[in-house]
Write a protein that binds this DNA or RNA. Structure first.
Lengths: 235, 235
DNA sequence: TCAAAAGTGTTAGAGGTACACCCATGA
DNA sequence: TCATGGGTGTACCTCTAACACTTTTGA
């Protein structure tokens, strides 16, 4: 199609970064999608993303596009695949490098970007039916990756996980967020992790500290509040 | 430089696949390099690789280029990184997707490709000083990846590892090959894995079978010969 | 007094790691 | 008989997973 061909005989693909941005809302894992305002796939939901600029490292591109299109800054940005199947984009030879990212709901000043008609968080258990391009496939891979990393308390997961919670939080809140990520499924059929084992593991993390005397009250026994120091050197 | 710019305002990078192809020779890990016959970096050693063709999946490109340039078919081909730092290629905006692969020495019908002046196996402990482009960096990453996968008996490592050995082999030969890969260092300072533990793990693999009555003699106690069935369904 | 969530230890099994001696052969 | 590599088993430690009851509060 409109791929370039040069004197040297080599064609060049269009190269984009697409980002699966996750957060936890009400104990359920959510994914950010934008509604495309332009062809192709106008009116379909798609992952945020965009084309790489000349000489721009692709990871920088992902971070930039995420900011431009949605206003979010990612607390984690990990490349997990290259999507290059022929026919994935009707415009021609378009290759996409996929990233996953997490953010805190409270940073959520969603803005409609230039080519987005709407931007919205979807629970991953109820994503729209028809997504643009091969984005269903990308999302599936992203969920696998996320669940796998969560299972091993990957640093790249834990940091943004803490960032998603209030500054002071209870261990139950932390576990709820973790379970949402780990299962990547609906609230209903998610498999809960063992409370005692979870606490054992998480309390062994450097940076997690109880706040003496601080508790959160409710119609039950008060819960100890904790905070997390991203700055590992202070631990 | 000569990157393309279109009516849509987006530039397109040149996209290549580079392959770090490994084998074990005399118990030492070797890497295949080609001497560049053309500018840039004429006369420097480089990883085999080449540009992706229109609509060609990048993994197919890697396999194709490896065959064209060196005559090898890879028994493993795993993508492990994208190299896109500005300035990595003096010709302009060139991005490279890096793969690692392993092959059996006995498939080694090295041929000089069109743009290669020479092709040669180098022990990874004695690579040439000045490599083309950012290939030193790519190789470093490839070695890390290789060692990590070997450490967990990754299927993608074990299959080609067996392919590198004669059809019938002793467990010592297998361990020697494994150690070479795992350490990725010179024969001298490599850390040997424990013989008994190695045998325990490796004998637990499906597909590895002792050949009754077959032994390899030498100036020592005869060694039991084994074979490996890649076809897992027969196990 | 009841409902709701907080908090708390122990045990069994699996897997990994460390470790040393005898065996069969050829020279 | 010696040098060479082949072959073998056990013990400890760590990590993981399974599992149930008491406590404190608000309604």
């Amino acid at each position: 199609m409109n791929a370039s061909r040069y004197a040297d005989g080599y064609a060049r693909p269009s190269l984009a970064a697409d980002i699966a941005l996750f957060t936890v809302i009400n104990g359920e894992l959510h994914l950010l999608l934008i509604e495309r305002g332009e062809s192709p796939f106008k009116g379909h939901w798609a992952l945020p993303g965009g084309f790489v600029q000349e000489y721009e490292p692709i990871a920088d591109c992902a971070r930039r596009e995420l900011g431009e299109e949605t206003g979010f800054k990612a607390a984690l940005l990990e490349q997990f695949g290259i999507f290059d199947q022929k026919g994935r984009d009707p415009r021609g030879w378009y290759i996409s490098v996929a990233f996953m990212a997490m953010t805190s709901e409270k940073d959520a000043t969603i803005k409609a970007g230039t080519d987005a008609a709407d931007t919205r968080w979807f629970p991953v258990s109820h994503l729209p039916d028809r997504l643009a391009f091969d984005h269903s496939e990308i999302i599936e891979r992203a969920l696998e990756e996320l669940g796998e990393r969560a299972g091993r308390f990957d640093q790249a997961i834990m940091d943004p996980l803490f960032a998603m919670l209030p500054e002071h939080f209870t261990l139950s809140q932390l576990q709820e967020a973790f379970d949402a990520i780990h299962a990547g499924r609906s609230k209903e059929d998610k498999q809960e992790s063992d409370k005692r084992n979870f606490r054992k593991r998480v309390l062994a993390l450097p940076g997690l500290q109880a706040i003496p005397g601080a508790t959160q009250r409710g119609k039950h026994r008060p819960a100890q509040l904790y905070k997390y120091n991203t700055d590992r050197s202070s631990g």
